[in-house]
Simulated scan of single mutants.
Amino acid sequence: MRDGHAETCRKYNLSPSLLRKWRLKYLSKGREGLKDSYPRVDPQLRALEEENERLNGTAHAANCSKTGFRIGTAVADHSRASC
């Protein structure tokens, strides 16, 4: 690598192979090639989704107990509930 690459690697604490990889992506696809290849999920959104799943599970268990079914037991009439 040229001196400029070595300086850049030292300045930003990058390995030369990573800088080379980014450079090749940039040369082949432009700025679009440097974007994330996977969608990022906002941590707050993820926390809300997990809480929603937890609450839905709690509501599902409460609904099953109201109908007389217990989670983890066999259900005689499959058309009534899916607990």
Rank of each mutant, 00 (worst) to 15 (best):
M1Y: 10
M1D: 13
R2G: 12
D3W: 10
D3I: 09
G4M: 06
G4I: 08
G4T: 10
H5F: 11
H5N: 14
A6E: 11
E7H: 14
E7S: 13
T8H: 08
R10G: 12
Y12C: 10
Y12R: 14
N13G: 05
L14E: 02
S15G: 12
S15T: 15
P16C: 02
P16D: 01
P16I: 01
P16S: 09
S17Q: 10
L18S: 08
L18A: 06
L19M: 08
R20F: 08
R20L: 01
R20W: 02
R20S: 13
K21I: 00
W22V: 12
R23N: 15
R23F: 06
L24Q: 14
L24G: 13
Y26P: 03
Y26K: 11
L27V: 08
S28P: 01
K29R: 10
K29T: 04
G30V: 02
R31S: 06
R31W: 00
E32I: 02
G33E: 00
G33F: 04
L34G: 06
L34A: 03
K35G: 06
D36H: 12
S37M: 01
Y38A: 13
Y38L: 09
P39K: 09
R40L: 08
R40C: 05
V41M: 10
D42Q: 03
P43S: 02
P43Y: 00
P43E: 01
Q44H: 07
L45A: 15
R46K: 15
R46T: 07
R46C: 04
A47Q: 11
A47C: 08
A47L: 10
A47V: 05
L48S: 07
L48W: 03
L48F: 04
E49D: 13
E49P: 00
E50A: 13
E50H: 06
E50S: 09
E51F: 02
E51A: 06
N52K: 12
E53Y: 07
E53N: 03
R54E: 10
R54Y: 06
R54F: 07
R54K: 14
L55N: 11
L55D: 04
N56F: 02
G57D: 04
G57R: 07
G57W: 01
G57H: 00
G57T: 05
T58F: 04
T58I: 13
A59F: 05
H60M: 07
A61C: 04
A61G: 01
A61Q: 10
A61N: 03
N63Q: 10
N63P: 00
S65M: 08
S65Q: 13
S65I: 01
K66I: 11
K66V: 09
T67D: 05
T67C: 05
G68R: 00
G68T: 01
G68M: 00
F69G: 05
F69R: 04
R70S: 13
R70C: 00
I71F: 03
I71H: 03
T73H: 03
T73D: 07
A74P: 01
V75T: 09
V75Q: 05
A76S: 08
A76D: 11
D77E: 09
H78S: 06
H78P: 13
S79H: 11
R80N: 13
R80G: 02
A81P: 04
A81Q: 02
S82P: 06
S82L: 10
S82I: 04
C83G: 03
C83Y: 04
